[in-house]
């Protein structure tokens, strides 16, 4: 990553406006062209430095719901269970963590009722009990990392 990449990662986390050429002002501020900007973003995505670029949707805003779920998965079963869990499109993120509860995943469902159904499906498929920890309150969500 060069200085322009770093400036781009920092700037694009703040978000861009909705307009016909949304990259133009960002590119101008960095002293590069729009086509160079989009090819840099494509490269950063390809290198895995960015996970995604685009609208960050909130299913709660469309009548759906999120929850954080956790399971204790036996070590020998871990890869198989991870594949079963990840196969659900409702699973937005999934992390292995160092704890007796070693698998933590976020469910994002378009209908709030689908949370319970998806959890029941995962419990049935994996044989592991799911701890359902929906957010009751959100205290902060505007974090950006600086590179």
């Amino acid at each position: 990553m060069d200085d322009v990449d770093r400036a781009l990662v920092n700037r694009l986390q703040r978000g861009i406006d909705v307009c016909g050429r949304p990259f133009a002002p960002v590119a101008a501020a960095l002293g590069i062209g729009e086509s160079e900007l989009v090819s840099r973003v494509a490269r950063l995505l390809g290198e895995g430095r960015l996970s995604r670029f685009g609208p960050m949707y909130d299913v709660a805003g469309m009548g759906g719901a999120f929850t954080l779920a956790a399971m204790s998965v036996p070590e020998a079963e871990f890869e198989r269970v991870a594949a079963l869990v990840n196969a659900h499109p409702e699973v937005a993120h999934n992390y292995e963590r160092e704890h007796a509860l070693n698998m933590w995943f976020v469910l994002a469902c378009e209908c709030a009722d689908d949370i319970g159904r998806t959890i029941a499906d995962i419990e049935r498929e994996t044989g592991c009990a799911v701890l359902d920890l929906p957010k009751l309150e959100e205290y902060h969500l505007d974090f950006r990392i600086e590179v």
């Binding site: 990662v9 694009l12 986390q13 703040r14 978000g15 861009i16 406006d17 909705v18 949304p22 973003v41 950063l44 430095r49 960015l50 996970s51 995604r52 670029f53 685009g54 609208p55 960050m56 949707y57 909130d58 805003g61 969500l141 990392i145 590179v147």
Partner: peptide, 8 residues
């Protein structure tokens, strides 16, 4: 939509 942005 929360914002239109990059996810690092």
């Amino acid at each position: 939509i929360r914002r239109i942005a990059a996810v690092p």
